[in-house]
Design a protein around this nucleic acid. Structure first.
Lengths: 215, 215
DNA sequence: AGCAGTACGTTACCTTCGGTAACATCAGTC
DNA sequence: GACTGATGTTACCGAAGGTAACGTACTGCT
């Protein structure tokens, strides 16, 4: 009963502490890349491992908390772009550009979220991100599908179609963005235009090459 | 000099042995999922760890060899679908269906290739696949981009655009397929049609919902 | 004042895994 | 018969995730 007093007194510092730990983890991940170990994170936070485990349960818990911070921000930005008051094409381009700008702005975070042990030459035991990146993409796909279903009249079976498109478009965005971030073969604007063109059916409209059968 | 005799005598069994080991690894991966350990694979092959390391260098090497077997088959199937003698839409649908049929036929292999430690409740140290799934998607994206560039006349800057589209389409296919494989929300044919429709620009052609602004 | 509870923190340890060194064995060659 | 080279073994290392046991400071209660 009277524990409420104590707990409320402690809960604020607890949340605060949690935030500090997450920020420390963030710093380590940004510095050491995805091969950051629990020991390293604990050291950066000025504490030791068991505290991390008391706060986050296991490594997955820490990662989940860490990922949520970033993915929430990304999702909010995407929702804003999706809700902007302009025509459909512009909104698609704006959404694509928002996503690409985000991953361009924080490539370290992005790589951590999406690609586990990228540059670890020894003992490739990084954060097991493959298990968590999928949920992120799923979330984005589901949300986009929902937006499509809400906004566009696709007739019978439109909701199913909208979900498929949501996941498909997110996957397209993700794969193209990932490749682009690695090779930087063109400007962001060019990539956005090309992807929007693809979504706008230019693949079906382009002429065949004269020398061979059409694709 | 005369070592040639010996080496030729040994090289055939060596290749054979390698195949046996790969098949054993395959079995373990299919059975134990992605949490298969080198010890488990060696045990399944009836040998011990160091032999695996002599054959494949490190875990990445084993995985690469293992992945190559499957991805080569997949890529060959995709190439065949891409080269079929029919119109562009049919070929796109056929390629999508080939990919989806492949991952549907061997979901275990697919999950192993794409998702690391999916269902490991303890010590999530699986094959570090996130590092290798990307290269597979990259390869597919590059190949598709090349095919698009070869077959379709996209005017100036067409090659860059074709590469973007290649990676984008592969990403779309992959993400939608991954989601579909997990939830099975519809038939394969329906998924193929929906994705082909998306690629054919139906997103830009559909009407807005009457009650809200257009997407 | 003295006591119980609770969160914080540490050291020391366990297990598992990837990876390797050292040694043993059996084939064919000179 | 000694030599070479591949195949196989046992035993081990280091690093990682994760945990148990213990100590400590602060709190409110009696």
């Amino acid at each position: 009963m009277d524990t409420t007093h104590r707990t409320t007194d402690q809960q604020k510092p607890a949340e605060q502490r949690r935030r500090e730990l997450l920020e420390a983890a963030d710093r380590v991940v940004l510095r050491d890349g995805p091969k950051a170990s629990m020991n390293a994170i604990a050291a950066e936070a000025g504490i030791t491992k068991p505290i991390l485990y008391r706060h986050f349960g296991d490594k997955g818990g820490l990662y989940r908390a860490l990922a949520t911070r970033h993915t929430d921000a990304l999702l909010a930005a995407l929702r804003a772009a999706l809700d902007a008051p302009s025509d459909r094409r512009r909104r698609v381009e704006s959404t694509l550009d928002t996503y690409l700008a985000s991953i361009e702005a924080m490539p370290q975070v992005y790589r951590f979220l999406m690609h586990p042990a990228e540059e670890s030459h020894q003992s490739e035991q990084g954060f097991d991100v493959g298990r968590h990146s999928a949920p992120l993409l799923r979330r984005m796909g589901e949300e986009l599908g929902q937006v499509i279903a809400e906004r566009i009249d696709l007739g019978a079976g439109g909701e199913a179609q909208a979900r498929i498109w949501g996941h498909g478009i997110v996957g397209m965005m993700h794969a193209a963005g990932d490749w682009w971030l690695g090779e930087r073969p063109c400007s962001r604007a060019a990539l956005v235009t090309a992807l929007a063109d693809l979504l706008w059916g230019r693949l079906s409209l382009a002429d065949d090459r004269p020398d061979g059968p059409g694709f």
